[in-house]
């Protein structure tokens, strides 16, 4: 048994760390209810300006349209990414040999050059391929990421090989094993990957802008960034927009966190 003082110390640590982490969101929520000048002056108590900030935000930008766009693109990217990368990660690990391990290392290189340097050649290529102003041009480069592939590869390492053998004896095909055995067992990995991929897709900024700079394809990060571009920034309204931009990821995390942190181990046994 853990002794009581140790238990108290543990809770104290977690509470302090949580408060430290959650503080900015609270600050943001408070700032969203205040007038810009009060935000600048560092007012820390909730104000009465929320509705005005909302009205100003709606008047200046197409909030719900941008929200819809962000959801649409993020969900498409997340689903495609999860399918493509989990297949690859599984392939790399379960059927591993020298060549595949080598290829994995090479694939990792793909993330090691700053995007600034690859963006311009990528843009040129997309233009030649006729992908400018298309959803495909926006989505294609972000589907397959070394990070997700490696995440699934590393997780697949703990997937018991005897399950695969047993399934093969039962006559299941390789793809069926992946769908029926691997997918349900690795629920926690999928949930974690989904959260992170959704978040990255949601926050993706520069590339969508490069591929199609049009009012009708505006996403939430673009909307937020537009609000800070002028000579005078309305901080109250900005914080409200930022809050709208942050909440979807937080909600998704909150819904999924039990899945990846309290997954029932041995579900397939």
């Amino acid at each position: 048994m853990i002794s009581l003082p140790k238990k108290i110390a543990q809770y104290a640590f977690l509470i302090i760390f949580s408060l430290f982490s959650i503080f900015p969101l609270i600050w943001m929520a408070i700032a969203a209810t205040n007038q810009s000048i009060d935000v600048i002056r560092g007012k820390m108590i909730p104000g009465t300006y929320l509705i005005e900030n909302y009205k100003a935000l709606i008047a200046q930008s197409d909030l719900w349209h941008a929200m819809g766009n962000s959801f649409k693109y993020s969900i498409v990217v997340t689903l495609l990414s999860l399918i493509v990368c989990s297949l690859a990660g599984y392939g790399f690990e379960i059927y591993h040999d020298k060549f595949k391990d080598g290829l994995m290392s090479v694939i990792l290189l793909a993330m090691m050059v700053p995007f600034v340097a690859t963006m311009i050649p990528l843009f040129g290529m997309m233009a030649k391929m006729g992908f400018l102003n298309t959803v495909a041009g926006f989505v294609l480069p972000s589907i397959s990421t070394p990070f997700l592939i490696m995440l699934f590869r590393q997780s697949a390492r703990s997937f018991p090989h005897d399950i695969i053998e047993a399934a093969r004896i039962d006559g299941l095909g390789e793809f069926q094993i992946f769908v029926r055995m691997f997918f349900p067992t690795m629920r926690s990995t999928y949930a974690a990957a989904m959260t992170i991929t959704f978040m990255n897709a949601w926050n993706n900024y520069l590339w969508p802008k490069v591929i199609m700079n049009k009012p009708e394809t505006q996403t939430m990060p673009m909307l937020v960034s537009n609000l800070t571009a002028g000579y005078v920034t309305d901080y109250g309204m900005l914080m409200l927009a930022v809050l709208f931009c942050t909440l979807p990821t937080v909600i998704i995390f909150f819904c999924l966190q039990k899945s990846f942190a309290e997954g029932i181990t041995g579900a397939v046994k």
């Binding site: 493509v84 990368c85 297949l87 690859a88 599984y90 392939g91 790399f92 379960i94 059927y95 591993h96 040999d97 595949k100 290829l103 694939i107 793909a110 993330m111 690859t118 963006m119 050649p121 990528l122 290529m125 294609l140 480069p141 589907i143 397959s144 070394p146 592939i149 992946f178």
Partner: peptide, 19 residues
């Protein structure tokens, strides 16, 4: 194994390695 990882590898080759 190769079939499983080909789509991902191709996408990376075209959209990351080429640039």
């Amino acid at each position: 194994g190769w079939v499983f990882l080909t789509p991902a590898a191709l996408l990376i080759a075209v959209f990351s390695f080429y640039p």
